[in-house]
Amino acid sequence: MRRLLRARLLVPAGVAAGVAAAGLLTFTPAAQAGTAPSGSSSSASSLHASTASASVAPTTSGAAGSASAKAAGINPVTLPSSYIAPGEALFAANCASCHGTDAVGTSRAPNLQGLGAGTIDFWVSTGRMPLADPTEQAVRKPPRFNALQTLEIAAYVQSFTPGVGVPIYHVNLSQANLAQGQSLFTLNCAACHTITGAGDALADGAFAPSLHVATPTQIIEAIRTGPGNMPHFSAGNITNAQARDIVAYVHEVIQHPTNRGGFGLGGNGPVAEGFVALLIGVGGLLLVAFWIGERA
């Protein structure tokens, strides 16, 4: 026991507890996820698996990417020109009725030219597009198109304005700084999405969506394009390295929170806690009192 204790001092206590608990007392497998070192093999592989759109693309090493972007781990993806023709067919069948031929927009939907492949990828891969009723705020739903079809549509729209707008990014989180990401997330994102990323209602019936299922590629696309009511954060505003840190924080911490203390109660804070305290805590003890005491 003494040797075990001394050995434990050498590694972070949270990890040590996870190791110690792994054999005998594993209660919440995800509980230690947040304390895993960023860029470890596990998080890198999960990133790769979740950025389906990027892994499908044949040329992920972006030739068009600037040196600083690559150094920051944010690599623009160049879509092959062979994607354009099938993309045109998909667009004509599914998008052109609102966005018009050549994606120039109609009275019902905006012009898509010049927005860049990243914008298209965000809206289509999150299932927000196609949208049945353009007067409602689009919500995340299972995407209509698979990853390849999404990239083909994006390549088609990008083909009108090559090099203009926000490209699709592949994000490499291995160099990310989670502490920086935490601070930047709190400053720039938490005011709408809440500090736990649960999302909340905004003015006039709009809402900030939950961040719990977004992929790293979708997060960076949202930061750079500002979908819907979200502000646009350009590289002059949030640098590529900062954006990578935010993506890492959302992907590794917000989406896998360290709920060391038990059930997270939806990340809804004191409202949920108050209900639990009054209904389960005080309510349960009232039942106990009702049992112990007399009823007449």
């Binding site: 736990t196 709920n259 038990g262 997270g264 806690e273």
Partner: peptide, 14 residues
């Protein structure tokens, strides 16, 4: 409650 219902997880708040 203290072990199963997480309350005020300040590490998530920063």
């Amino acid at each position: 409650l203290a072990g199963f219902a997480q309350i005020n997880p300040i590490w998530q708040f920063g």
